[in-house]
Design a protein around this nucleic acid. Structure first.
Lengths: 232, 232, 232, 232
DNA sequence: CATGAATGAGCATTCATTCAT
DNA sequence: GATGAATGAATGCTCATTCAT
């Protein structure tokens, strides 16, 4: 329970199993091993529940190595977040096909997002656990990941805003907030989906999101706007 | 920064400032003081960044009192969450007027929510920091607050589902997920709003949400449904 | 689990069950209640595992009362020991019949001892747990109980030494040690007996002790003495 | 009284006094140092009166080392007990000469026992303080040490039972109890001896025990048995 | 007489981090 | 390059003990 070797997605451990196994690995390989293990642990157990000892143990190296590669626990976690964020962005970006319509883009983006969540749940959990409204010791990391997330935001925002001919968003703050709404909705649904074991098809969830947002967006694009009700 | 006396919402400290010092306060009063201080700290700095010493210090009492009232740090935080959750639910519930239309209800609910966030930011931060996808040591507390939140969900879900004559939600899991989408969107916007200091009017944010959701919901109520695009 | 009322051997709780139950009891009665509860707890769980809160809880009074009657936890425990020791001594002393032979006295003493152990197991455990070779914080109490025990020792020692016409005990230290041997043997057997639930009859154990000691003592009384073997 | 460096039985501190300071000792050496110090403290002051701080202080290391080697205070004390028990057993076992008579064996066993007590008084005190009728938090440890002691028991039991041609011991429970009687007697005498500073020769005490037991045993071996007196 | 309220002081335990080899 | 050995600094929690009422 304390020293579970993870299956090593890199497949490197298997190649040099002979003598002196797991020694003198080239830097980038080691780094990936560490990130892999740390991401998994951080994602599944949360930052505070994971100790550097544990991570070193799982990677199969000594603690000072972790400090040699990343400067601190915080640094290591930040690197994990960065990687996870990049993975998420890549997964979603890759789904956009050059000439496709915004509707198609939004749909494929949602789909790619849900598939990413299902495919790399601990990465997603890691992102969620830190990127949410977290305060204190993490503010730097949060802002960092927010930067990452913001680029995801912009990806979709581009799609979304392209359609809003009659722009109901008064200013930039609100426009950004709007894309966060989209994200918040998608994230919250993904959280529930994960909680339920990702058994329902990703398509169902993505479809539901489209039902909420695309229909709304299209109507807005048609010039429809909701105005506050007057108090009776 | 380490020993800031909180302003004492009870107003009692002010009355017996003469005698003062080791005041012998009745149980419920002390309890509120503790919850007040702890909620604030937990909300602003996060569970792990706050120590029991710190909390006791802020309340102006000794640590053992905290343990006498709440059994553990976890217990104290759970109580804070419970209170914050109840406050949020009350704030929103209170906004619903008996005979009003769903549209009015949704609007006033959103408005009440944003006002609550602005009025009790640290309570909201507390809820967010724990009720988000948090893993490990907090799962019990999270489920507790989720129960509270779920009643908020249902409030709106009732509104939402009442309108969806042609129900696009395949099953219950999706229906629940749908309400989480609503929540996720609202929460994410609230987070951004807070980050920006809550300077824009709450109405703007609520309006934006209505633009997204109500228009979509109304269209759905009109029988419109989005169907997955066929792959070319 | 935290607040088990003990059955109150005194039967006093039952008498004033009406209003203001358990208040204004005469001092000696309260004292007995406290000793009863504390002895039980100390005996079953050990000094350090029992807290003053627990004791007060079981007695059904507030902690300051305990301090009013006994000055400290140590004082309370010392009083418990004293009482338990006195009980043991009384039980054994009462078994001696005036004109009986030493053999009869020894036999009835052993028997009475085992019966006491079975009848008041937690008293016995209390005595044992503190009167053994305990160090540190307890030295004063230990010496106190040793004084009590010593009088038990002397009771039997009188019997034992009366018979040893040809005295094999060089000096007083050894003579005292001899009686401790007798005690140690009886105590150790009692411990095992208790561990086994006191199911075998007390007579069997007492008989066994007589087999060991009385036969030896009688032989010694007949002048037989064991002398160290010469090294080959 | 709080930070007395122990004399270092390993003799290592003396050799590298130059380099000294934060010495980087190999694991087994440190382990022995820790056991040495802890045994001493636990033995002299009792488990509860000793803090991990104190132990670390005496060893001259930091607390976390204690936890790195032994998992907890309980673990450390258990290890001390184990060692002390093994020492005692070894000391006694070593005294038995292969072809010797039971009488010689018993005698040399007693002698070895008393010498062990005198030679390693704190080890003995440690054993006594925990292996006696101790309740509560220690039950596991006690049973562990009892296992160790039981092998000592069996050593002597063999001697004892070998001689009892006409077996006065009804069943196994009583036979085991008999050996505990022997132990109890020896232990009690050792306790008194220690209390008096171990000034009298060990031979005197061992002789006294032989006087009690061997004469009794031999008589029993001759078929003599004590039977309960009939009540007049 | 009796107690609820309150605390000072200590203790086991953990963990990120760093030398010396 | 890699590590075993080591630690400073907290942190959650408990408990005997005492006021003020």
């Amino acid at each position: 329970m304390k020293s579970q070797r993870i299956p090593s997605a890199t497949g490197i451990q298997e190649t040099n199993q002979g003598a002196a196994a797991r020694a003198r690995l080239p830097r980038p390989v080691r780094e990936q091993q560490m990130l892999e293990a740390a991401s998994h642990l951080f994602g599944e157990q949360g930052y505070h529940a994971v100790s550097m000892d544990q991570i070193a143990d799982v990677v199969g190296i000594s603690k000072p190595m972790l400090y040699a590669y990343f400067d601190s626990k915080e640094g290591l976690c930040a690197a994990c977040l960065k990687r996870a964020g990049a993975d998420a962005i890549n997964a979603i970006s890759a789904s956009y096909e050059p000439g496709s319509t915004p509707e198609q883009s939004l749909w494929s983006g949602f789909l790619a997002f849900f598939q990413f969540v299902k495919g790399a749940p601990s990465s997603w959990k890691l992102i969620r656990s830190q990127a949410s409204y977290d305060v204190g010791i993490f503010q730097e990391m949060v802002s960092e990941i927010h930067d990452d997330l913001r680029s995801v935001v912009q990806e979709i925002e581009k799609v979304a805003s392209r359609e809003t001919a009659a722009d109901p968003f008064a200013d930039d703050e609100l426009r950004v907030a709007a894309s966060w709404a989209l994200f918040g909705a998608a994230f919250a649904m993904a959280d529930r989906w994960l909680e339920n074991g990702c058994e329902s098809p990703a398509e169902d969830y993505a479809t539901e999101l489209m039902n909420f947002f695309w229909i709304g967006i299209r109507s807005m694009a048609d010039g429809e706007t909701w105005k506050p009700l007057k108090e009776a």
